[in-house]
C-alpha cells in the first residue's frame, strides 16, 4: 500500500543516522564557498531570483521580514574594531543559503512530512504538502527558510513580468514554506539527461544558478559522493568531513592541520551542513 510505504519511508528519513535512519545516498550535493574570493556583490542572489521564481515583496513586507531571498549576503563588521574611528579593513561577507544539513533540525519538526531528506542529501520541501506551521523555520539555526505570508503571483509578477517565470519550478502560493533547493530542477535535468544517455553525471556538467553567476567563482558546487569532483577534492584538501563518512560526531572535525581554511557555519550544533566555507583572508597591516 502506498500509504504504508510513505509512512515507513518517512520515519526512516526522519531518523538520524544514529537511529539507523535512511542514508542510502545516491548523491550528496555539496558546496564550498570561498570567503577569500566573495566580494559581496549580490550576483548570486539575483541569479537565484531569476532561476527560482522568487517573489519580490516590496518595502513594507520586507520591513516585516517577509522577504524571500533564498540566497542572501550577510555583512558583518569586525568586532575588534568596535572602538576604532574607521573600519581599517573591508566588511565580512557571508553568502547564506540553506545548508542542506545532513542532520537537519527542520526535518523532524514538520508535522506533515512536507520537509524531509532526499536520497540526494537534500532537505526537500514539498510545497503542496506544506500546511504552513512554520515549525521548520523556527527550528532552523541558519534562518534560511522563507514563508509565503501573502499570495504573491499577482503582486510580484504583474504582466508581462510573469513571462519570465521558470516553468521548471513551481510558483509557491500563500501559506507555504520555501527555501533553497540547490537548484533541484537543474539537478533533475542533469540526472534525467545522464539516465537517458546511460551514464553517470559528470562533475561540472551543471551547477547551481548562484555558482554559475558568481563573478569571482567563489561558489563551488558538486557531488560529495563523487570522489573525483572538484568540490570533494576541496573538502578533502581542507579536511572537512561529513560526520557519517566515518561515523564521527558532527562537531568533531579532527582536522590534522587546523591551519586549513575549511569550516562549516555553526557546525557545533551537529547539523552536519553540506556547505563548507573557506575562511576569509586579510593582510595583517594594522
Amino acid at each position: 500500500m502506498s500509504l504504508e510505504n510513505l509512512t515507513q519511508d518517512w520515519s526512516r528519513y526522519r531518523n538520524g543516522i544514529e537511529e539507523g535512519g535512511f542514508h542510502n545516498y545516491e548523491h550528496r550535493w555539496g558546496m564550498a564557498i570561498d570567503l577569500n574570493a566573495c566580494i559581496g556583490c549580490n550576483a548570486c542572489s539575483t541569479a537565484c531570483y531569476a532561476e527560482n521564481n522568487l517573489a519580490v515583496v516590496g518595502k513594507e513586507r520586507f520591513s516585516k521580514g517577509h522577504y524571500m531571498h533564498w540566497m542572501r549576503i550577510e555583512r558583518y563588521w569586525d568586532e575588534d574594531q568596535a572602538k576604532a574611528e574607521f573600519p581599517d579593513q573591508g566588511a565580512n561577507f557571508l553568502p547564506m543559503l540553506c545548508q542542506q544539513c545532513g542532520a537537519a533540525p527542520c526535518e523532524p519538526v514538520c508535522p506533515v512530512a512536507a520537509t524531509y531528506h532526499t536520497p540526494d542529501g537534500l532537505n526537500a520541501q514539498v510545497y503542496n504538502r506544506c500546511i504552513g506551521s512554520r515549525y521548520c523555520s523556527n527550528n532552523c539555526p541558519y534562518r534560511v527558510r522563507y514563508f509565503n505570508f501573502w499570495s504573491y503571483p499577482e503582486s510580484a509578477w504583474p504582466a508581462p513580468l510573469n513571462l519570465q517565470l521558470n516553468p521548471d519550478i513551481t510558483v509557491r502560493d500563500k501559506g507555504v514554506m520555501e527555501k533553497c533547493t540547490f537548484c533541484v530542477q537543474r539537478i533533475r535535468v542533469a540526472k534525467d539527461t545522464a539516465k537517458m544517455e546511460n551514464r553517470k553525471i559528470k562533475d561540472g556538467e551543471f551547477t547551481t544558478a548562484c555558482a554559475q553567476a558568481c563573478p569571482t567563482s567563489a561558489i563551488h558546487f558538486g557531488d560529495l559522493m563523487d570522489a573525483e569532483s572538484a568540490v570533494t577534492k576541496l573538502w578533502a584538501k581542507h579536511q572537512v568531513k561529513r560526520h557519517d563518512d566515518e561515523g564521527l560526531p558532527v562537531s568533531t572535525q579532527h582536522k590534522q592541520n587546523p591551519a586549513l581554511r575549511g569550516y562549516r557555519v555553526l557546525e557545533e550544533l551537529n547539523t552536519d551542513p553540506s556547505v563548507m566555507y573557506l575562511e576569509r583572508v586579510r593582510e595583517e597591516l594594522a
Partner: peptide, 10 residues
Amino acid sequence: QLDRAKREPA
C-alpha cells in the same frame, strides 16, 4: 499557455 500557467502556483 505559457504565461498563464506561471500565474498559477498550484
